[in-house]
């Protein structure tokens, strides 16, 4: 896993540039959230663009998960605005987020082991004929198409998820998120439970999703992964955003220092 990323720079250059012609897919301004006396997030501004991978870093309790929960519609902010395509939006439920094209890959993956890949990809949203009968043929077709597009090594979409390896399961969860017509993919610790080779595959998967022009937000504790896949790195500390940098402009030591001390190693006054 020591190898630095191979192909990420090409994409990073294409979709960045602060003076963008197009408004970002999603724009957050002044987001605040408290749970009782605990301030989980305060005054967070963040832009998320399509075709860009943003890594959210920070120690436990920094506010990353709170932010992702807000974006997937699980919790609502106390204050601040979220704009999607320049339109003010209220993310009131997971279903609403899905309508906007935002899909989440949960840390526990939310797969049913006893069912096959196709059934899992359409879980809760099975296509039906005559109102009630599940359209298996369509499920198999569409699931196969997405899996092929992701170039995941799966024997068949009719395989039970319980028969898959950890990396394959992760791939199924990502494929499901993509299938739901998403424009933005939120991934909470996508490699936490995986081995080295499987983590590698997930990183490649994220790169494929980006190349399809989607926005990707990744939470990760793994610095190697972050530097491998992210175009932009956003660091949180105690509920505040303390850094938002192009990956190219951030050294590893800087990131470690930001995470641990809340400031860069040499230029402490940056923020």
């Amino acid at each position: 896993m020591k190898s630095p990323s191979l192909s990420t720079t090409a994409y990073a250059g294409a979709s960045n540039g602060e003076s963008s012609e197009r408004p970002p897919f999603l724009r957050m301004r002044g987001l605040c959230k408290s749970f009782g006396h605990v301030t989980a997030l305060s005054e967070v501004d963040l832009d998320l663009r399509e075709g860009q991978v943003v890594a959210l870093c920070g120690d436990n309790g920094a506010g990353k998960s709170t932010l992702v929960s807000m974006l997937s519609g699980v919790i609502e902010p106390d204050d601040g605005t979220i704009e999607v395509d320049g339109q003010p939006t209220y993310m009131t439920s997971p279903l609403r987020a899905q309508e906007l094209g935002i899909a989440t890959v949960y840390q526990n993956l939310a797969l049913v082991e006893q069912r096959d890949v196709a059934a899992n990809m359409f879980l809760g949203q099975e296509p039906v004929r005559l109102g009630v009968i599940v359209d298996r043929a369509r499920m198999v077709d569409e699931a196969t198409r997405v899996i092929q597009r992701l170039r995941v090594g799966l024997p068949s979409v009719r395989t039970l998820v319980g028969d898959l390896s950890g990396g394959q399961r992760q791939a199924v969860a990502v494929a499901r998120a993509m299938l739901r017509g998403s424009r933005m993919l939120l991934m909470d610790e996508p490699t936490a439970a995986l081995g080295v080779r499987e983590s590698r595959r997930v990183i490649e998967l994220i790169q494929e999703v980006r190349s399809e022009g989607q926005a990707v937000v990744v939470i990760s504790h793994n610095m190697e992964d972050v530097f491998d896949v992210a175009d932009r790195i956003v660091v949180f500390r105690l509920g505040r955003k303390i850094a938002d940098e192009e990956r190219a402009g951030l050294q590893r030591e800087d990131l470690v220092s930001l995470l641990v001390h809340g400031c860069r190693s040499e230029e402490a006054g940056e923020r």
């Binding site: 049913v112 899992n120 009968i133 599940v134």
Partner: peptide, 24 residues
């Protein structure tokens, strides 16, 4: 075997958290 309701029965027993996360 063939209806959406049947799928939801399997999902409920297989992994209720997953069923909830996908809107069942």
């Amino acid at each position: 075997r063939f209806t959406r309701f049947g799928s939801h029965v399997y999902a409920t027993g297989g992994n209720e958290a997953a069923a909830a996360a996908t809107g069942i």
